[in-house]
Design a binder for these strands. Structure first.
Lengths: 193, 193
DNA sequence: ACAAAACGTTCACTTAAGTTAAAAAAGGAA
DNA sequence: TTCCTTTTTTAACTTAAGTGAACGTTTTGT
């Protein structure tokens, strides 16, 4: 499972065995049960996550309702905004499935970054990539209808539609569960004709 | 005007006079007329922008229609996704007003970053901040209605509503110009009662 | 295994956005 | 200024999402 992390890092920088050992010595691997809450609204936290296996989701509580806005699955990284802004979290994070992930602390990261400039570079490149990717996602969201967004998701992340409850998918698509249900029925009808 | 750039940088790192001079020697300041197209759909580019005065916008052409997805004003930075992905641009960028900005090249940035590790750190921190901010923006967009989004914009960026044409604001809010017009009338009615 | 809770779908109804078209208003060029 | 173009608003109509409620199904905890 550790190899998955190194495989990910290898896309950005080359690590020596020694450097790998430094990382391993930090003891960042965690195995968490489905339903575990990793971060709660209002909490302060310095932890970032990298999912090795399973799925975690970010969600807000608005008018007493959960609004899921993000899913992170295999080989995806998440640094919550509250870590960057050093402020109480606006959302919660919980595990949708039994999940294996790394949990790394901000202080720990800064130490590694200053010790190994390579890491600093990797972090910059990674954030730039994520920023660009998220920009495109946001733009696609803005310029399309709920139905197009669903069809788009079906193309890009078909796994999500299988592994995620419909009502969570709905808020991820910016609509109500009933609308998603109706929209799916509508698509079925169309493809039948 | 150069001081505005240094003022921005000072929020992240401390620059010596010598370092400032290195930056100035790169000749990155540009003054561009309203309407100028900085980047065209399909083009490859390595340029990033930092707006000192004025406003630029990013827009897609979908079914022959312009869809504006972003506005960048004073003290805001933009690195187009195409620069990060080294691929043809999916959107165009043009100047909404006469604008003064810096234009910096990717190669130039990498050279500065490797020469001054400080810059590397600034770039990392800046991308992380922008990523977190954009994440929050995206989540707010997903979890609110067009009307709420408009009212939200009125709070957060009242200047945009003044300086930007309505039909461009509409696509920025994910709706049609007619809907924005109607929505505004609706809000007026409500506040009159 | 059972009861309770959560989930997904359907329905009728309401509300708001999309569409098409036309008119009014604003802006720019000669 | 006048003319032309672009932008904004208004209106009537269509389509789809929001809402509240019911109902069957699945999941969960005991």
């Amino acid at each position: 499972m550790q190899d998955k992390l190194f495989e990910f890092i290898a896309k950005y920088i080359a690590l020596t065995e020694e450097e790998k050992n430094v990382l391993l010595s930090l003891d960042i691997f965690r195995s968490v049960k489905k339903g575990t809450v990793l971060l709660e609204v209002g909490q302060k936290s310095k932890d970032s996550y990298f999912v090795l296996k399973g799925c975690i989701r970010t969600y807000y509580i608005i008018d007493g309702e959960e609004k899921t806005t993000g899913f992170y699955t295999e080989m995806e990284a998440l640094t919550p905004p509250c870590v960057v802004h050093k402020s109480p979290s606006e959302y919660s994070i919980s595990c949708l499935e039994d999940t294996i992930l790394t949990v790394s602390n901000l202080d720990m990261e800064e130490e590694v970054n200053s010790k190994f400039p390579k890491f600093e570079i990797m972090c910059r490149v990674l954030s730039e990539e994520l920023l660009a990717k998220q920009r495109i996602d946001f733009d696609e969201f803005k310029t399309s209808s709920p139905e197009q967004r669903y069809l788009n998701l079906l193309q890009k992340r078909p796994d999500l539609i299988q592994r995620v409850p419909q009502h969570q998918l709905a808020s991820y698509l910016g609509i109500k569960p009933q609308s998603l249900s109706r929209l799916r029925a509508r698509i079925m009808d169309k493809s039948k004709e």
